[in-house]
């Protein structure tokens, strides 16, 4: 089973996680820029974080044969803090980087006017930089948050096929399916979505435009739940081709729209990693 985790916050994870992920078949991932639990209070704190997403973290991943990409944005929660909003001005610098394959996570947390402004401005940045967009949906008031997100996406003029609406569940998936956007599901140990529920959704809606991620971060989460979902699909009678489509080809297709996904020397490999561990691009 080859796995591309389209949403995982590796900065919060240990090398043990990288090792277990590689052993489970994870060979590529996207780390979206998000909040860190502890609120940030200035722009420099963000740029150091972005630097890590395009510098240190890809190096860490490469030591385990895992290709690391990221998305860059001002997240909706911190868009409410006037000390953080000037981050919007430095985003173009980062959206030009090789490893940046989308604008994200953008969207809503509490659906405030400040979040409205940051969301629209960053969808415009996605269009201007020819990048897809990753939209986080709120954990509270989720249905209305999803509806409002879809309305903002529509208004922005971005092609819905270049947008993923993430953290969906049984109640919100239908809305997104009809919009033409991609449907993202975060599989969590207790909340959001579980492998058996994901399998039921795949049965009902099919594998098209569906992305399955672990969204593992600093909270209680499990970076191997993408693999567990693949195993649950197999047990439920899905073919290897369906599993490969959901766990590999779909994320490749979605983020490939950036033109920056670099999976060279990877597409043909079997599930194991080839030990290209050290000094990639070194002298």
């Amino acid at each position: 089973m080859r796995i591309f985790d389209p949403h995982i916050h590796m900065s919060s994870r240990t090398t043990d996680d990288y090792e277990r992920m590689a052993a489970a078949g994870v060979r590529a991932l996207v780390e979206p820029a998000f909040w860190l639990g502890q609120p940030r209070t200035n722009v420099g704190s963000f740029t150091d974080y972005f630097d890590s997403l395009v510098g240190w973290e890809p190096y860490r991943a490469s030591q385990f044969g895992i290709r690391h990409h990221c998305t860059i944005a001002l997240n909706p929660k911190e868009a409410n803090d006037p000390r953080c909003r000037p981050v919007l001005d430095v985003l173009p610098r980062y959206l030009a980087k090789d490893g940046v394959v989308a604008v994200g996570e953008i969207g809503y947390d509490s659906m405030t006017p400040d979040e409205d402004a940051a969301f629209s401005a960053q969808l415009a940045l996605a269009v201007a930089n020819d990048l897809p967009a990753l939209v986080h949906t709120p954990h509270r008031d989720k249905v209305r948050g999803t509806q409002r997100s879809l309305a903002v996406v529509k208004e922005s003029g971005i092609d819905p096929g270049r947008v993923v609406i993430d953290h969906l569940n049984e109640v919100t998936v239908g809305l997104v399916k009809d919009s033409g956007c991609w449907m993202g599901f975060s599989i969590y140990p207790d909340t959001k979505m579980s492998p058996p529920r994901m399998v039921a959704i795949l049965r009902e809606y099919g594998p098209e435009r569906i992305l399955v991620n672990s969204a593992a971060d600093w909270g209680k989460s499990d970076p191997l739940l993408t693999h567990a979902t693949g195993a649950a699909m197999r047990e439920a009678g899905f073919s290897d081709d369906d599993i490969d489509r959901v766990l590999w080809r779909n994320p490749v297709e979605f983020y490939g729209q950036s033109g920056r996904l670099d999976l060279s020397d990877m597409e043909d490999l079997a599930g194991t990693y080839a030990g290209n561990s050290i000094l990639r691009g070194g002298d």
């Binding site: 630097d51 510098g55 890809p58 430095v90 980062y94 090789d98």
Partner: peptide, 9 residues
């Protein structure tokens, strides 16, 4: 300052 690892190198 604003380079990724390849740009810095």
């Amino acid at each position: 300052r604003y380079g990724d690892a390849a740009e810095k190198r």
